[in-house]
């Protein structure tokens, strides 16, 4: 996937440079300005993720997600997903492992859903672009919505 992203970017850059070298330089200047403006916050997020992943390894998450199979377990799973920030390529295999380890489908669905849609760690970054109120509302709604996702997946998986 990254390869596609790089191929597209390089092609666009070449195309842009051929059309207008000066304009391309200005575009890259804009890219750099936007990047350097947000870089300090990105680095803080990354460092906090390092701290969090150290405190919450797969065993800890399993202990929390497997602890209660009812709605309280779903709530715990949703909270864990909301406060953690794990890249997808780590999250999905971990979730599969948790399922095999005895966690329920509803808990896993709530965890995956809040993990992707709710970002407590990235809230400061989100606030700087969208303002406090909107960032809070968006995260709250996504959090609530994750219970619906958990419920539907619980229904569908129970059908089989």
């Amino acid at each position: 996937m990254n390869t596609i992203l790089y191929i597209v970017t390089i092609l666009m850059l070449i195309l842009s440079y051929r059309r207008d070298a000066g304009r391309t330089k200005k575009a890259l200047q804009k890219s750099w300005n936007a990047f350097s403006a947000i870089l300090p916050q990105f680095l803080v997020v990354i460092l906090l993720v390092g701290v969090m992943l150290t405190l919450m390894d797969a065993d800890t998450i399993l202990a929390i997600l497997g602890s209660d199979s009812r709605w309280f377990g779903v709530l715990l799973a949703a909270v864990v997903g909301a406060v953690t920030l794990i890249p997808g390529f780590v999250a999905f295999p971990t979730a599969a492992m948790l399922l095999q380890g005895g966690a329920g489908y509803m808990q896993i669905a709530a965890f995956i859903s809040t993990l992707m849609m709710v970002g407590i760690m990235t809230l400061p970054v989100e606030i700087s672009y969208f303002g406090k109120r909107l960032a809070l509302y968006r995260n709250l709604m996504a959090f609530a919505f994750s219970f619906l996702v958990a419920y539907v997946i619980g229904l569908v998986e129970a059908l089989v």
Binding site: M12, T24, A27, S31, A34, F35
Partner: peptide, 9 residues
């Protein structure tokens, strides 16, 4: 960010 800059200009 490079694609963003290009899109912007």
């Amino acid at each position: 960010f490079i694609l963003l800059g290009l899109l912007d200009s």
